[in-house]
Design a protein around this nucleic acid. Sequence first.
DNA 1: CGACTCATTGAGTCATATCAATTGTCGTGG
DNA 2: CCACGACAATTGATATGACTCAATGAGTCG
Lengths: 245, 245
Amino acid sequence: MQNVLARKLSNAGTLEESDLIRLEKLTATCRQLSPKTDIIGQGDAPDRVHLVMDGVACRYKLLPDGSRSIMALLLPGDFCDLHVAILGQMDHNIGTLTQCDLVDIPRSDIEELLNNYPRIARALWWATLVDEAVLREWLVNMGKRRSDRQMAHLICEVYLRLKSVGRSEDFHLPLTQEQLADTLGITPVHAQRIVATLKQDNLISMAGRAITVPDIHALCAFSGFDPDYLHLKNTTRTLGAFGVN
Amino acid sequence: MQNVLARKLSNAGTLEESDLIRLEKLTATCRQLSPKTDIIGQGDAPDRVHLVMDGVACRYKLLPDGSRSIMALLLPGDFCDLHVAILGQMDHNIGTLTQCDLVDIPRSDIEELLNNYPRIARALWWATLVDEAVLREWLVNMGKRRSDRQMAHLICEVYLRLKSVGRSEDFHLPLTQEQLADTLGITPVHAQRIVATLKQDNLISMAGRAITVPDIHALCAFSGFDPDYLHLKNTTRTLGAFGVN
DNA sequence: CGACTCATTGAGTCATATCAATTGTCGTGG
DNA sequence: CCACGACAATTGATATGACTCAATGAGTCG
């Protein structure tokens, strides 16, 4: 099973051969986007659903003072706007952070999935609810953890989410310090401070300008990472002593 | 239309007489809970769905250091755990903050609604997606707004959400400063400081120990409140110049 | 003329220092 | 549970310089 979408949705429950074939067909044609390109803007009501196949995108809002708040990282296998139809219009923007491969799926295809592939339909709702669980954890992260733990926690989450779609080999997080800062709700200068201390404590290291993780268990312990909120039925077991609990 | 659930779901789109009657039947029997009572705990997989009819409840997590993070306020018309079935188990706790009236709905009733009442089904998904939009806004609130604006923003949101279910007459927010602090990710001492300054600037006032709002427009302007994220199709129009935009 | 080298420039990113503002911690009393 | 004070820690604001990298264009040589 190579397809990231199929791997991701398999975390929701078992999919059968027919499901996998249908998903494979869905993701046949990608297009590539440059870093820092907008995909959808606030107020849009797009008629196609966007799916990330490679790279890192994000949900973000721009504030009156010009600063940006990143509210979600979209990794391979993540949908950008599965349910805009129900809300009517986007209440935030979506854009790439790194170079990305995207799939555009007609809304009619999604509805056909929901109607004729009950296991996939359930998995799509699972994905939506996990997105919500991630948002809750980010809220805890922002509210209650010091920003060094907060950054460590974010890195652990991305590591595990990539692992759950088979992309953790050669893990690296190629975000700029400004992008990290916008995600954590801190200033770029402070993000630099924290990267420096984490590097000094050997909790992260650098591969060029991308963050890598020499010892994921140490990073998890440092940040108090508990993977339960990701609801990875398949993956968590394989992680063994991953995390602190 | 007295029923808070019906009023809430009407914000998603028009419901018809048959829908309203069905919803009325759903909420026939309440039970009352004391303040600070747990409703569901992390790890539970409850077989009934809980709906708040009166009072304020919350989603929260407890952290290793003993502190608490409140990730959502549940107001009249809000479901506590509509979709746990899909995720398997709760990844957080739910408990009352004030005295609450709750309805326990058998999961089979929900499934019957989803199958036989398409307008209600759509409205329930709408409610779920709005919950997610609120989480995103809270994340922005925590990350990018100073805590005085943050508290003001929270009060504006609660005011508008209550208004959207017909409960804004005699608005008051009867939370303790500790509960407010856990919601905003700050310390109780700091919450006290902020309440004091907001009071001093006549942005809020007190009715006993509950916060009230002498001038909602001033509070909205102060916090930069933009109600778009609540997706209140019916209500926002009636607010006129409510908010800053 | 065309292809190549190689300074120059400028945007973007990272590193570091200093000072100020916000927020947390602890303690005391109503 | 609320109010308030004193002090400490964290984080923000501002400024400056170094570094990479791509684009440009002048000069050199076949």
